[in-house]
Design a protein around this nucleic acid. Sequence first.
RNA 1: GGGCCGGUAGCUCAGCGGUAGAGCACCUGACUUUUAAUCAGAGGGUCGUGGGUUCGAUCCCCACCCGGCUCACCA
Length: 489
Amino acid sequence: MELNDLQAQRLAKLERLREAGHPGYPARTGRTHRVSEVLDNFDQLVEQGATLTLAGRILGGRRVMGKIAFAHMDDGSGSIQLWLSRGDAGEETFAHFRDDLDTFDIVEATGTLRLTQKGEKSLFVQSLKLLAKALNPPPEKWEGLKDVEERLRQRYLDLIVNDDRREIFRKRARIITVMRRFLDERDFVEVETPTLQPLYGGAAARPFTTFHNQLGQSLYMRIASELYLKRLIVGGFAGVYEIGKNFRNEGVDRSHNPEFTMMECYQAYADYEDIMRLVEDMLREIAQEVTGSTTVSYQGQQLDFGSSWARVPLAEAIAEKTGIDISRSTDLAALQAEIKAANLKVEFKTTWAKQVDELFSEYVQPALVQPTFVVDYPVELSPLAKRKDDQPTFTERFEAFVAGMEVGNAFSELNDPLDQEQRFLEQGRDYAAGDAEAHQMDSDYINALMYGMPPTGGLGIGIDRLAMVLTDQSTIREVILFPHMRQKE
RNA sequence: GGGCCGGUAGCUCAGCGGUAGAGCACCUGACUUUUAAUCAGAGGGUCGUGGGUUCGAUCCCCACCCGGCUCACCA
């Protein structure tokens, strides 16, 4: 290993300690309290005159004066000041701190609690022991680690230096905890379904492909858990959900990562309107618990999760923004003629459904800042959703939008096996025509539906994007601990 | 994939044909209540990689690698 000067200095200190008989990286600590416990019960512990042992990382710089020294220690629960006096700690301990220990070292400190003259809660140190030497030095004291590439490649360092960053991931964990509790309370059963699948389905996306050596079989990393979860509704569960990773072999940008976390849930004997109420209730509760309010500030805008969400039919939303009525321009040529007549700046697509989606993405989606359900999607875009009784070319489907981002997708699930088979066949024709994201025929899924699936409402929520909204982050990689980065040579 | 911008000390950044700089950090010395401690001094560089132009390249040119922003893609 090649070491720079700063690393070599630190290593020399470690070797000096080892020569003097210190273990270097001892296996355990004799700590008696966590920092947060000390801070919470400070007055009481001072009154008891307790001698206690804390452990943590030296942060915030060391300030060593002739016969007195200060530093801060962070153990993940909180941060407290260490205060050494040469007279009280003794020459040996003081010299150990001054000569052997560096910022970022992980140490154990034993002493009593005192307030400094400036009123800061401090551990008045009697003895110190190194628990783990940090051979790498800290980044700049005030600017910190700013380089985005280094922050993401060395996320551990990013987290050490920036407690705000740790807070984002605490909130992300809280989102999942509250979501799980919400679903458990409503008698959904948490399940696990295959991540390696012989057929991929449940979404329109290109998969990652892998191979099982012993079986000699290609497998796909799942792009959604949908079709397995619905098999479980056939199997008799009243409600199921799964929180897990999906993998989509697509581009990376501020709202897409190749692997991302999705919650999918399915409720028997419910429809998409029931699911809308479920989403409203769930996100209201999550927003309240995670941010302390049902009004969430995102990139300077106030998002209201306290009220019921606007419900806008897709066709109406497009008509409002573009003047084009997609329920009247029902084929590609007619729709594109309308687009030309209206002089709209959108790309021309190869199918009517894709053209509708293009209009929506371009003219409607960016304006959907407040939580909104866009409802009733064309059947061509929704091969797993049930048709509307009164409008069979549209489906009982909604997508949930917040801050211009799609955070959820839901429908009254298609449970007619014959219709489902036709939809798969149509998707197969699209695939043959070059649409790499079209669904594949899944005859086992059809077989499951042939045993009868109750009317069912289903939902997918993108956890990463929800975390972006609730932690006010503009890019998905700031809510993913280790986002995808290209390998360095 | 396209366009624009960037990669210089551990970190944050300046320099842009002629001896490679600052701040912080680190090291040495002084200092018994610091909070960006203070004061004095010292050390630290394959200027992303590989070619080219030039008497001379961190600087100009070409290619490549890795990023950032943005557009496209992601129904």
